[in-house]
Computed example of a mutant assay.
Amino acid sequence: MTNKTLALRTLAAIAAAGAIGAAPAQASDIGIAASNPGSLYHSTGTAVAKVANDAAQLKATVHPFASATVYLPAVSAGEYAFGISNIEELRVAVTGTAQFKGRDYGNLRAATILYPLRVAFFVRKDSAIKSLADLKGKRVVDGFSSQKTIPPLLDASYATAGMSRGDITPVNVPNVVAGANAFIQGKADAFFFALGAAKVREADAAVGGIRALDVPNTPENLAKVRQFFQPAYLRPEKPSKPNVGVLAPIHAITYDAALVASTKTADADVYALVKAMHANKKMMAEVFGVMNLFDPSRMVKDLGPIQWHPGAQKFYQELGAWPPKD
């Protein structure tokens, strides 16, 4: 082999290696854990997956579970890259308290605040039940054996009417989707769900109309609510097409939904996803209307014992939103 031939082959090999090195990186496969279809979290996961696939160069799939109580441990273990949850359930998971007492999920991390999660009791539109106090003695969903974040919210709601869960006739269900099904089937007089969820719309269509019950906005009621669910606040809601069941102005118990990751979720994947979400609110809202409440200027805040994922922190630093504020 001549020196000239050897040199040409060497150059060709270098060029080929350069071409391989310049090839685009393979998209990461990520799982997004969410609640069952019809739930607020499942629809949220679908919207986030849309942005992950179309704008973040990731390959995302939504995986349904009974509730975040069930799947947050799987996110912590790295079985799924992300999960849809809320800041209170994330807090008790990382501190090993409440339903997670004695278990260590301290490697869960916040990735972004999603939107204000608004919850209420719903009854039939023509029901004689006009207020929370009218639920006394009625058949109301309860139990929530696989969704432990719900009972404290029930306690908070009843407290504003001077009641407790012992004042209703319980219809025990494992989760909110099952509770809505019990209502649709005529087994319950009221069900508890998040405003804007697909299941709420389904219940409205199934029974000929539903009505959300108000939590009167007073300092006394807010104090009672926070005895059971500390991060909650009372948010005004008005009748609108997305607010199915809100037939007159009301206030709803509200707290923040969050996208959750763990220390086992790649920094690059978290960074890519939160950056794409910041730039693509419209894309997410076209998939799920509640994402209209997503605020790109409010993606990060101080969450006390909950740590932020380094990949998310990197983006918020670039955005000028770090360190987070209350």
Rank of each mutant, 00 (worst) to 15 (best):
L259R: 08
A285Q: 14
G162Q: 06
F315Y: 15
D204Y: 05
R226L: 01
I184D: 03
A15T: 13
R298G: 09
D189K: 09
L154T: 03
E286Y: 00
D104I: 07
S28H: 08
V270R: 04
T149Q: 11
M277Y: 01
L154E: 10
A25D: 03
S262D: 05
I87W: 00
V274C: 11
Q230L: 00
G102T: 05
L132F: 00
D326K: 06
A22H: 04
I30P: 10
A248W: 01
I113S: 09
L213D: 02
G96K: 05
A206L: 02
Y105D: 01
V176H: 13
G311F: 05
T2A: 07
M163H: 12
T254L: 09
S240G: 05
G304R: 05
A257C: 01
W308I: 06
V225S: 04
L259Q: 13
K301L: 13
A12Y: 03
R118H: 04
N217V: 01
P151G: 03
A33M: 11
P296R: 11
T97Q: 14
P236S: 13
E89G: 01
H63S: 13
P37A: 13
D155T: 09
L293Q: 11
A194M: 07
Y255C: 00
T149H: 09
D167W: 12
P296Q: 12
M284P: 08
F191W: 06
N181C: 01
N36F: 04
K187S: 08
I150T: 14
V270L: 04
G245M: 02
F65A: 06
A190H: 13
L234H: 11
M283K: 11
V177D: 04
L114V: 07
A74Y: 15
P219G: 09
I168E: 09
F121H: 15
P116G: 05
A55C: 13
A49F: 11
A56I: 07
A257G: 13
A279T: 03
T265M: 02
P242F: 04
D189S: 14
N175L: 00
V270N: 04
A261M: 08
Q307D: 14
I20R: 03
A23C: 06
A312D: 04
V119A: 10
T160G: 09
P151F: 11
S67A: 15
I210C: 10
G102M: 07
S262W: 04
Y316Q: 10
A205Q: 15
M283A: 15
S240N: 09
A266R: 13
V62N: 10
D54G: 02
G166Q: 12
G289Y: 02
R211W: 07
E79I: 02
A68D: 15
Y71E: 02
T169D: 13
V123W: 11
I210N: 06
A25Y: 01
Y233V: 02
L72P: 06
T95P: 02
T149N: 13
V70F: 05
G289C: 00
V62T: 14
N172I: 07
D134E: 10
K101H: 06
L132I: 14
T10W: 09
R124Q: 12
A188C: 03
F82A: 05
V92E: 06
F183M: 10
H63Y: 14
A128K: 15
A248E: 15
F100Q: 03
A25E: 09
T169H: 06
N3P: 00
R118K: 14
I20A: 10
H251F: 15
F315E: 12
